[in-house]
Amino acid sequence: MIKAISNLGSYAIETIEQIGRTFNLLLIIAWKMCLPPYQIFPIIKQIYFIGARSLTVIIISGATIGMVLGLQFYNTLERFGSVGVLGSAVALSIIRELGPVMTALMVVGRAGSAICAELGIMRITEQVDALECMAIPPDKYLVAPKLIAGIVSVPLLNFVFNVVAIGGGYFVGVIMLGVGEGSYVNGMIDSVVWGDVRLGMVKSIIFGMLITLICCAKGFYLHLSQYGSQGAEGVSRATTDAVVISSVSVLFFDFLIGALMS
């Protein structure tokens, strides 16, 4: 019994420490990013890795989710004789909720896990220590470009996801199921307001920062975690944690931002 309480206490302390370290890392990077030298080329490289190389998965998932939404909304709306609002329903669901959330989850799965594993391996193979010893701040050199790239790439990917998903809904609703093109497009234009676009944009910027920060912190501080001494298995467990925590955080913050901005 005492052992169980003790374990729970250790877990709680470690969790609080991790949250503190992650927040601290964000503050350090925010400060160091203001100081020269500016890491322009590494940021472009990371935007290519997180953004451009995620395009395929974003396009495929966007098209699939748009088509599924088109189909499901059509079946539901048909029962109420309201298939004319299909365009509005698809666009609003995607722009306000599904676009930012699905884009973030896709980036977590494709790039977040890779970022965490890369930094974790660099930590256990003393590459991070080597940077320290070369007087190159590893947080600025390794983490900052990834964080900026995440903040830039996720909103752009979200935009692509939204366009493709609305196109997928159009394909199923208008081309396959015969909903009028005018009602789909005009309904969408009439119902989507600037507030919806702004909400989606704010969400995707925050998600971009959140997922890259969590994944970077998990890998970068691997040596301070309970898996720090477990070598390759430690990297694998930290990566799993990073993906799970990032995904859950995205869902939680989705609700929080939605509640605060609606």
Partner: peptide
């Protein structure tokens, strides 16, 4: 400390080369 580190060189056991 970073200023001092510019005056030192370190060769780690496994090399710690950037892969």
């Amino acid at each position: 400390l970073y200023g001092l580190r510019e005056q030192i060189g370190v060769a780690f056991q496994g090399g710690a080369l950037f892969t």
